[in-house]
């Protein structure tokens, strides 16, 4: 059944293809992290139309499949928007980024909601502009508790990258398929893909877990009995549930 010799022979190609997978993962993650923050802040706009449009965009993107979004982006939207159509990798990064920014915005939102109302009011009483309220008062308190959930999204995005094979990106899964089309031996190739993803996801999740523990320790050290801040007790648990449930 299992042929070690064949497995070893395709492993270097698969590992080489991981490079593309990593680019797509980190690129998509950074895009989503920035896009999510912008969506979260727009969701707090004093102008109701901005909030409503923001909500509409988020719901639309969340309620349509990522695969379909990728197709539309790669084959229609991006080629019409740009004179030279972006590569599959860039399109993939944009697609993953847009899709996951809507989920990340929810994570940011719970972080922002966990900052007590009194902090906004104190900022106003000191006459902070809106921009400075965000940058010096709200975000420095809202972001640190979201980091572990953000880390989990990095893993989620990583595991979604095989979808990019649908828009012709030669990442790990495509490389495996290519090998299979020559050898007609799917068992080894798919198993190896699975194992690779398992190992990398596991390492990531251990790192995230470590970060979480450190953050919790720091937070309980710095928040003490400060009744003025009502720190995010319970807030984090809420954040954790926000991670998109993957089927």
């Amino acid at each position: 059944m299992w042929n070690w010799e064949y497995a070893w022979s395709i492993l270097p190609d698969l590992i080489a293809a991981l490079k593309t997978t990593f680019w797509a993962t980190f690129g998509g993650f950074i895009f989503a992290a920035i896009g999510g923050l912008i969506l979260a802040m727009l969701g707090r706009s004093p102008i109701w139309i901005v909030r409503a449009v923001n909500r509409l965009i988020i719901e639309f993107i969340r309620n349509t499949p990522l695969l379909v979004q990728l197709f539309f982006l790669y084959f229609y939207i991006l080629p019409t928007m740009f004179p030279t159509a972006p590569t599959a990798l860039v399109s993939g990064i944009i697609g993953l980024g847009i899709h996951y920014s809507t989920y990340m915005s929810e994570v940011y939102r719970s972080g922002i909601d966990a900052v007590p109302k009194g902090q906004w009011e104190a900022a106003k009483a000191l006459n902070f502009s809106r921009t400075k309220t965000w940058s010096t008062i709200i975000l420095p308190q809202a972001l640190p508790p979201t980091l572990p959930v953000m880390g989990n999204y990095l893993i989620v995005i990583f595991k979604e990258t095989p979808l990019l094979s649908a828009i012709t990106l030669v990442e790990v899964l495509t490389t495996a398929k290519n090998a299979i089309s020559i050898s007609y031996r799917p068992f080894e190739a798919y198993t190896l893909v699975g194992v690779l993803f398992l190992i990398i996801s596991y390492v990531f999740s251990v790192l995230v877990r470590m970060m979480e523990i450190r953050l919790n320790r720091e937070q309980s050290a710095s928040s003490g009995t400060d009744s003025s801040s009502k720190p995010q007790s319970g807030g984090k648990g809420r954040l954790d549930k926000e991670v998109k449930q993957q089927a």
Binding site: Q119, L126, I137
Partner: peptide, 15 residues
């Protein structure tokens, strides 16, 4: 607002 200041019941210090 530059003319006005306020101290709150619950301090609202920046933690």
């Amino acid at each position: 607002r530059g003319n006005i200041g306020m101290v709150f019941q619950h301090f609202n210090l920046f933690p």
